[in-house]
């Protein structure tokens, strides 16, 4: 059973539907006991970093999530669900993250020139399909061609202190961390559940992953 963590953030239906399409048995829940009993958990997230952190805390979900991770069970974070794994987020003030990946989450610089059109500046949010370079092999990249397109929508991105945990890189004005991993943790800045067949393939890989 995979539990999708519901803490009042985002379109959980599309995450759940995509997991089901990839062959998973899915429970969407905000109850700490459902997280404690899960074989795998998926932490989604849209919206502001601080709100997401606050909502997780309010629902008393941080401890069961950390226990799940410490027990070595598979964990997938998506978008803000990835950003929350960093040390701190710099969105509307500085907020502490779960610090599973030391580093911070910062905004794209709106004053950078647009690579498509030098007369304009970079559009933020970074919204749409971008290529992801796989920095190293990983079981969740199985069957995914190098430099494939995935769907992104975000204004902030993670800056890990230790670059070896970056397993995917994209370029938007600057190169940025599109996927991080270590041990039983994998997280993507892009949305696999909105990235058509290749996104579903990542979810399928997650469902069969034994770290």
């Amino acid at each position: 059973m995979i539990t999708v963590i519901d803490y009042g953030s985002g379109n959980l239906r599309s995450v759940a539907k995509a997991l089901e399409k990839s062959g998973g048995r899915v429970l969407v829940s905000q109850r700490p006991e459902d997280i404690r009993q899960a074989d795998r958990i998926l932490l989604p997230g849209v919206g502001a970093f601080g709100d997401c952190r606050h909502n997780l805390e309010k629902a008393q979900l941080i401890e069961p999530v950390l226990q799940h991770i410490q027990a070595g069970k598979p964990f997938l974070g998506i978008c803000v669900g990835m950003q929350l794994l960093f040390g701190e987020g710099h969105e509307f003030g500085i907020h502490p993250g779960l610090n599973l990946f030391p580093g911070k989450v910062v905004t794209f610089d709106k004053t950078m020139p647009d690579p498509h059109n030098s007369a304009m500046t970079l559009k933020v949010p970074h919204m749409g399909w971008n290529r992801v370079r796989q920095n190293r092999p990983h079981p969740l990249w199985a069957g995914i061609p190098q430099e494939s397109f995935f769907y992104f929508v975000h204004s902030y991105h993670g800056l890990p202190d230790h670059s070896e945990c970056t397993v995917g890189t994209s370029v938007y004005g600057i190169p940025f961390c599109a996927a991080i991993a270590r041990d039983n943790l994998f997280a993507t800045q892009f949305h696999p559940e909105k990235s058509q067949n290749l996104g579903l393939k990542i979810l399928e890989n997650f469902l069969s992953w034994s770290p």
């Binding site: 690579p115 498509h116 749409g128 399909w129 971008n130």
Partner: peptide, 8 residues
């Protein structure tokens, strides 16, 4: 690079 989107 970010792809331009085609939206029906």
């Amino acid at each position: 690079m970010l792809a331009k989107r085609i939206i029906p």
